[in-house]
């Protein structure tokens, strides 16, 4: 075993090297087996067509699981019945859309044919408004604070980011327990108010906590993005301001905020896009959108219409998906436009 992979004798490091080399050689042999068909193929089709071989597996899966569904999504919205396979479904034209959109008054979900859908639309709208502004403000403040730190920045950045990595189910359950009848919050609350509250069973409280938990969950992500924007502002601008004797308050309003604005707008639109799609953590936290329909959102409507009822109305769900998709498309275009503008 004195001779290593390269055939050179290196007695001093013999043991360490030879075991690593054995792994190397094993890997080499294994890859040789994988390599063979590729090399054959290259000889057959020539170098110039090889990139196709490399993109093909990924493209195939992408086409099957993403691209085809995108194309089919529109198709479903115009069909009825409860069959899953598109070609077995009868064409119904705009019926799904007209059902979704038929309302006595758009301001009152109760007058709509599908009042649940409109309740969901209303709920999603207020959720989006509160969640987007709340998250933006909290993230901005946190980013500003973090940006000032000279020490401990990485530590606090990590703390604030940690919840982002948790799963929606975990986040929902952690908070459900925190807010439970026997939970920590009630222990404090009961002391002050004299009685316990079942937070998630009261309409206003539950809505508050859904937004609160969502901000708690995601703000770290937006903080990082805003922080990156802040760090991209050249330091010398502040040094110049300092020499000019500009106050800190003025520095913020006249320098930081305007320079950060493109970044903030992009973050805001991203927040809107993500907020419209609220589902996972809110659904688990509120036991399916409760109390009643106080926290039923559009994605929940789509999911339940298509998958969680006995009569699976795929067409109706898809029509709702398409409507939501349109809203997202508009937001995405706004974002692209803002991004372009920020670049210039």
């Amino acid at each position: 075993m004195a001779a290593t992979d390269d055939g050179y004798v290196r007695p001093a490091r013999e043991a360490a090297v030879s075991s690593g080399d054995r792994g190397d050689r094993l890997l080499e042999a294994a890859m040789g087996v994988v390599e063979w068909p590729f090399t054959r193929l290259q000889r057959l089709i020539g170098l110039r067509r090889m990139p196709w071989v490399f993109v093909l597996p990924n493209m195939a899966l992408f086409t099957i699981f993403v691209f085809i569904p995108v194309l089919l999504a529109i198709g479903y919205a115009f069909t009825g019945g409860t069959e899953l396979l598109l070609w077995n479904r009868p064409f119904v034209g705009f019926e799904n859309f007209s059902r979704l959109l038929s309302c006595g008054s758009y301001l009152d979900p109760a007058t709509c044919e599908l009042d649940l859908f409109w309740t969901a639309v209303f709920n999603t709208t207020w959720y989006t408004a509160f969640n987007a502004t709340g998250t933006l403000v909290v993230s901005l403040v946190t980013a500003l604070v973090l940006n000032r730190l000279t020490r401990g920045k990485a530590f606090f950045r990590a703390i604030f980011f940690y919840p982002v990595l948790l799963s929606p189910v975990v986040v929902a359950l952690v908070w459900k327990w925190f807010l439970a009848r026997n939970g920590l919050l009630n222990a404090v609350f009961a002391d002050m108010m004299g009685e316990r509250t079942i937070f998630l069973l009261e309409v206003l409280w539950s809505r508050f906590w859904v937004v609160y938990v969502s901000i708690w969950f995601h703000m770290g992500f937006y903080t990082l993005i805003i922080l990156a924007g802040l760090q991209a502002i050249p330091r010398d601008i502040y040094e110049a301001a300092l020499i000019d004797g500009t106050s800190r308050w003025r520095q913020f309003w006249r320098l930081t905020l305007p320079l950060l604005m493109p970044n903030l707008l992009v973050v805001l639109v991203l927040l809107l896009i993500r907020s419209v799609q609220v589902f996972d953590e809110a659904w688990v936290l509120t036991d399916g959108g409760g109390p009643g329909t106080a926290n039923t959102f559009v994605v929940q409507f789509i999911y339940e219409t298509a998958f969680a009822t006995d009569v699976r109305l795929y067409g109706l769900a898809s029509a709702a998906s398409v409507l939501m998709g349109l809203a997202l498309l508009v937001l995405t275009l706004v974002q692209l436009w803002l991004g372009k503008k920020a670049e210039n």
Binding site: F67, I68, L84, I273, I302, Y303, A306, L328, T332
Partner: peptide, 27 residues
Amino acid sequence: IFVLMLSTLMLPLSVIMVPAFMVIVGL
């Protein structure tokens, strides 16, 4: 290919739930 992929980057699952499930059933 690249543009095609990028354009779906923003497309959430919630919009294509039904057809994506059909593909799963079909396969």
